[in-house]
Amino acid sequence: MIDFLLFAVAPYVAITLLFSVSLWRFFFTRYKFSSLSSEFLESRELFWGSVPWHYGILILFLGHLIGFLFPAHVLLWNSVPVRMLILEVTALTFGALCMVGLVLLIKRRLTHSRIQVVTSWMDVVVLAVLLIQVVTGIGTAIFYRWGSNWYVAVMVPYLRSLFMFAPKVDFIKDMPLMVKMHVFGAISIFGILPFTRLVHFLVPPVSYLWRSYQVVIWNWDRKKIRIPTR
């Protein structure tokens, strides 16, 4: 019954929250669709945390998406053992990159008093959920190899069953706890997304890729502003 609630009911609750709250926010508080940048308050550690985190998570998200959309092609790619190994090691590398970035971001948020001032409880929730997600993801990759193969064999049919409104929980029931946590973590991210700074997913600055360069000129000593002398 608990599996049914977590993996057959919760996904729909999460998606309903995602769409309804996001639309409500879009129509009534659209100018708060933001990642609430704290770059002005601290930028050095942000760089070393944010860059690896975002490169890592974007590649991993893309990998999960490709597996979902083209499962047969992933199996075909993995049919040559060396290619599967390359895919797995690449995924593990980006997973580790995510972990490094996330740990630095957590450290930054917890140790800088200026950042703490602008930190909400939902920020803590977001970081905790993401940390669980990354730890269980890396753990699954290492201890339940080869994830790229069984993801398309087990998880993709489960995810597709959700889209068909006929969830096949049997795919999940006998999965190890770590895998279940990773799946439920993903579901909960969709659910909490519109209540947090993660809402910036929905307004990615894609146009930055092709817009013209912008020249930014600072008329003051940035370093002095960043690290005020007491």
């Binding site: 053992p81 599967m84 190899r145 193969n149 069984w150 087990v154």
Partner: peptide
């Protein structure tokens, strides 16, 4: 019929890249 290869979840001796699956 498109079924996933066994190595996705199973190991047999030393077969497969760094061993087979362990799910």
């Amino acid at each position: 019929n498109g079924g996933a290869p066994c190595v996705s979840c199973h190991s047999v001796s030393e077969y497969g890249p760094l061993g087979g699956g362990v799910l």
